[in-house]
Amino acid sequence: MLLIKCPWCGNRAESEFNYGGEAGIARPANPDTLTDAEWADYLFMRKNPKGLHQEQWNHAQGCRRWFNAERDTVTYRFTRTWRIGEAPSSTRDVDS
């Protein structure tokens, strides 16, 4: 069972969380001005890296907060989590 550190509640079991996909995908300010290709890029294209991946998670059975997490897709380890709107800490909780 993975433990995920909610930036508000601390370590909780993964069963309390929902996954939200890749983090940092800003919604374009003026969708109408985008080409189909540009819009499709926002809509569909995701990084899917092998290694560290920045993601959004939701503490669904707890404080209901969405937050950012960095996870190693090889080991599943969460290296750090941080609140929306804040910068991630420069050090990782665990090495990836």
């Binding site: 509640c9 909780r12 079991a13 069963s15 309390e16 059975q61 707890g62 404080c63």
Partner: peptide
Amino acid sequence: VGDCVQTG
């Protein structure tokens, strides 16, 4: 005492 948790 004084703690509360939301959980499953």
